[in-house]
Amino acid sequence: MTELAATDPLPKPKRDIAPVLLPVALALLVIPLIGSTSSWLTLTAASLAMGMMIFIMASGLTLVFGLMDVLNFGHGAFIAVGAYVATLVLAPFAASIQADSLWMNLAVLAPAALLSMAVSGALGLVVERVLILPVYGQHLKQILMTTGGLIVAEQTLYALWGPQIIPMPLPTSLRGSFILGDVAIAKYRVLAMLIGLAVFIAIQLVLNRTKLGLLIRAGVENREMVEALGYRIRRLFLGVFMTGSALAGLGGVMWALYREQVHASMSDDLTVLIFIVVIIGGLGSIGGCFIGAILVAMVANYGGFLVPKLALVSNILLMVAVLMWRPRGLYAVTSR
């Protein structure tokens, strides 16, 4: 390596953009297979919207996994609780939801989402203190405790709301599609994309532009050394766990609106997808989680359209392919 003079500008960090190109390459690759441009655009928009919702739900889990080395199999409980809280808040405001005014709809929807996040975050506090704290560093017990917690949460929701599916209609102004030529893109999907993108940017800003973010990124890599520098990482753990739970709650509300229904075991199928996203993204990597979520959603949508019989295993195949390429995920942060 050649030495730089003291006055030379400092080098910029190199960026690993190969994973970023993956979804782009996949989207371009399927164009000839799908044939119709409008179908491709619709499927791509659906993939991006679904990906953003999965990202919101998975982002907290990847930080919890990476920072705290906690296998939280109960993450789905926060999703379901978030969705149920939203139904409670929205029920008395049915008229506002049905009003044909975007602002009236959002005036009810936004507080409902915020309250769902608050309740899921508070539940996260209880879960971390009661279930996780006694089993830090013990993976098998973590699986047992958090799976048990998920079952208790689901059964409690059944007991309180009953086994029936609860409808959660989309607000009137978010129904329908934006029509661009012969392409129709659902309005709610655009909103989901915007919210997902906003959450991603907010997390990236916190992680990259604040000292708190530096601490989280450092803690994901080496908790012990963060403590040796004088930072109390247990408090950070708790904050990240609560934030992850709150984001899962927000994701639950968004998913419930997407499906227009809520039920206690609504997170069961999602949990598999979320874990796939966290693993292929690289434990603890928000960037990897973001790309992983888009990839998973693309494979689900394109795969479902092109080869419906492979839909069930398509994401497992994706995970195998990514891990063969990068065994620690798209962006490896931890050595785990």
Partner: peptide
């Protein structure tokens, strides 16, 4: 050594400057 590999040199030192 336990440097934080994912952080830049600058970020490692910013974190150490408590």
């Amino acid at each position: 050594m336990a440097v934080f590999s994912d952080l830049t040199v600058k970020e490692n030192l910013v974190l150490a400057a408590r």
